[in-house]
Simulated assay, not measured.
Amino acid sequence: MRALLSGYYGKGNGGDEALLATLLQMLPPHVTPVVLSGNPEETRSRYGVESHERMAVAPVLQALRSCDAFVWGGGSLIQDVTSTISPVYYGGLMALAQKMGLKTVAWAQGIGPLKRAPTRFLAKYSFGHCTKVSVRDRASAALLSDWQIPFLIAPDPVWALSSRPVPGLWDLPAPRVAVTLRSHPQLTQARLANLTRALIDFQIATQAFILLLPFQKSEDLSIAQAIAPQLPNVSKILCLEDPQLLKGVFQGVEMAIGMRLHSLIMAAAEGCRCFALSYDPKVNRLMEDLDMPGWDLTSLPEDANVISTTWIEHYANGDPLSPAQIQSLVDRALMHRQVLQEAFT
């Protein structure tokens, strides 16, 4: 059996690459993956899979015709807040695959927000005609329940991604704290300046070595480059694109401060204390599920001293998830594999 995998792959986003790596780990052995990617050559090289340009009409149609199944490969693909084009693209592919008679799976989805009626209609139609559906959070599950669409709910599959140690990480000074910030309208220049001032004070108080960890170079690297000169000799920008190495960073980190959802999941899965800076409901859902401390960026304290003091307190006295909690999340995340096995028998 051949399955066409569609997601935000090959675009340099560590979280989406982690979802692809986990999906490839979870596919049944008799299923051959074919991946739609923004960088097919890189995807072929990294994962050893057949890959085609995601926006090239002829190769996409040819790939659909050559496959027996189609998979939405995890994440917030069906939402219309950051893009109105995204749900049309993914929903259109799903509808086409369904019209062509392929088995279709919506795998590990985080649905919404859906602000527009046409997007909601497309989402309801697409999910309603899937062979199998799994979601990663309660809000998505509630939406599908309202639509009377059967589903499985389990934690984000990246909890179950296997990590690899990062060469040279242990040569950097300890203790280490990882920071992942991304470009976003809510991260204004004033808020970034406050966070940077707080990070400087936090570093002085804790003597931690700061790892600035861009998860997507196009969105994150410029922010890391703006912060690094203000932490001379006590920080390093660490650019990693292999998702297993990216998760492996957190094996050597005491605490993570992050905006990116998957930076927080990876850190928590490796036993780090985590502090969230939320720009999106999906981050708030994780904070609620794990009782993770943090702020919405829109309610970030204006006093940098309040921010640094809060971070210092969490660094000194906060608790990471226990090994039992982590194992439970990993075990439940593996339930997404069950959806694939049932769909592709």
Rank of each mutant, 00 (worst) to 15 (best):
L4Q: 06
L5H: 01
L5P: 03
S6P: 02
G7A: 09
G12H: 02
L24Y: 00
L24I: 05
Q25R: 06
P28S: 13
H30L: 07
L36E: 08
T43E: 08
T43K: 02
R44C: 13
S45W: 03
Y47R: 00
Y47F: 15
P59N: 06
P59Q: 02
R65D: 07
S66K: 06
D68K: 03
F70T: 14
V71W: 03
G73L: 02
G73K: 02
S76T: 13
L77T: 06
D80T: 02
V81G: 05
T82G: 11
T82N: 07
T84V: 14
T84Q: 12
I85G: 10
V88T: 07
Y89M: 06
G91D: 13
M94Y: 01
L96H: 00
A97M: 05
Q98N: 08
K99L: 12
A108G: 13
I111L: 12
K115I: 15
F121T: 14
A123T: 08
A123K: 02
S126I: 10
G128H: 10
V133K: 04
S134E: 03
R136M: 01
R138G: 11
W147F: 10
W147Y: 09
W147H: 11
Q148C: 11
Q148T: 15
I149C: 09
F151L: 14
L152I: 11
L152P: 02
D156C: 12
S163V: 12
R164V: 15
P167T: 15
P167F: 09
L169T: 11
W170D: 15
D171P: 03
L172P: 06
A174M: 09
V177Q: 01
V179Y: 04
R182N: 11
P185Q: 05
Q189P: 08
A190S: 14
R191G: 14
A193C: 12
T196L: 09
T196S: 08
R197Q: 15
I200E: 15
F202D: 04
T206K: 03
T206D: 04
Q207E: 14
L213C: 12
P214F: 07
Q216N: 12
E219K: 04
L221V: 10
I223M: 01
I227Q: 06
P229R: 10
P229Y: 06
N233A: 13
N233E: 15
V234F: 01
S235Y: 00
I237V: 15
D242L: 02
P243M: 01
G248Y: 03
V249M: 07
V249A: 07
V249E: 11
R260E: 13
L261K: 04
A268P: 02
E270T: 08
E270I: 08
C272N: 05
C272T: 13
C274L: 03
C274T: 15
F275I: 12
P281Y: 09
D289L: 11
G294M: 10
D296F: 03
S299N: 10
E302W: 00
A304S: 15
A304M: 05
T309S: 14
T310I: 09
W311L: 15
I312L: 14
E313K: 13
D319N: 07
A324E: 10
Q327F: 00
S328A: 11
R332L: 07
A333F: 00
R337M: 00
R337I: 01
Q338D: 12
V339L: 02
L340N: 03
Q341G: 04
A343G: 04
A343R: 00
A343L: 02
T345S: 08
